[in-house]
Computed example of a mutant assay.
Amino acid sequence: MKRLFYGRLSTARVATDRTPGSGVATGRMVRGAVGAIALAGAALGGTAVPAAAAATEYVALGDSMASGPLIPDITGPIGCGRSTHNYAHELAARLSATLRDVTCSGAKTTHMTQSQSTSVGGVDTGTVPPQLDALTASTALVTLTIGGNDVGLVGIAQDCATLDPTATPCKGEFEDQVAQRTRDFGPKLSAVLDGIRARSPKARIVVTGYGLYIKQNGCWPVQPVLPTDANFLQGSVNALNDMIRQQTTAHGGTYVDLVAPSAGHDACQSASKRWVEGYVPVHSAAPLHPNAAGEAAYAGVIGGVLGG
């Protein structure tokens, strides 16, 4: 059996950013509070609310699903593939918040407290500081998207690509590995959430899951994964989301589901409807990652949950 190979992306370790993200050749693998925070208020005792108030201090943490690699325009360290149109920037604009965006492609939970090495097209682009360093005691809102790289979902999705309808599904090869990594991720996320709370005790902590990447049974060969593997891959995303939800609620945070709102916007849909790109992008975005429409939609979903 042969599986597709897609060349490494030329931005921000996108190929190693293991979240569920251009030429084609053959080969086995593809490597490639805020309502309370909003500072609006009502006049009390006839006193008018000041026209200008201090902006909400908002810190965005996370991996490439949050950073938005290959979506114009780039901002910050080039190796992080951070876009001015990722969900953090879109959300900050909605909230009129002061944003510190330290999201970075390739980030794992370890990079919340340790520096991260970055590269572009295999060329070293230096390191970025631990993401939790951006937090302060006055931070009022924190968003976090993390876990896909800890579990390795993009790499596995790449390895599962095939144009052979008779190929053996990859589920049997990776199922146990993904399940174990997801279990191992739970305590790691717990430690990250504790770290956020210690640094920003007054902040509202909002943690997103990952979205709907491929519909039930997929759409082979439009997206080159067999029906069994399409269900395995999205099922793995859903299992990771469940772990994220459990840990977030246990730590007093707000979990935001992105799967349900993404129905009808997965990589099998038309270019005008999809929020995430497939193995070969049709918009300026990384393969198997949200595009600009997806990032803007996620900002809307998060803002709705926050009441902003």
Results as ranks from 00 to 15, higher is better:
Ala137Glu: 09
Leu135Arg: 07
Ser115Ile: 08
Val120Gly: 02
Gly121Met: 00
Gln131Thr: 04
Thr109Glu: 00
Gly106Asp: 07
Thr103Tyr: 05
Thr118Ala: 03
Glu90Gly: 06
Pro130Phe: 12
Ser115Cys: 12
Arg94Gln: 15
Leu95Asn: 02
Ser96Lys: 15
Val120Lys: 00
Asp124Tyr: 15
Val142Gly: 06
Ala140Trp: 02
Gln114Phe: 08
Val102Ser: 04
Thr118Asn: 07
Ala92Met: 09
Thr136Trp: 02
Leu132Met: 14
Gln114Trp: 07
Lys108Cys: 05
Asp133Glu: 14
Leu95Arg: 10
Pro130Met: 10
Pro129Val: 09
Leu144Thr: 03
Pro130Arg: 13
Glu90Ser: 10
Val120Ala: 03
Thr139Trp: 04
Arg94Leu: 14
Ala107Ile: 05
Pro129Asn: 12
Ala134His: 09
Gly126His: 13
His111Trp: 02
Glu90Thr: 08
Thr118Lys: 06
Thr109Gln: 00
Ser119Cys: 12
Leu95Asp: 01
Thr113Trp: 03
Asp133Ala: 14
Thr113Tyr: 06
Met112Phe: 05
Thr98Cys: 10
Ala134Leu: 09
Thr118Pro: 04
Ser96Met: 10
Val102Tyr: 01
Ser105Ile: 00
Val128Pro: 05
Gln131Pro: 03
Thr110His: 08
Lys108Val: 05
Ala134Asn: 05
Ala140Lys: 15
Met112Val: 06
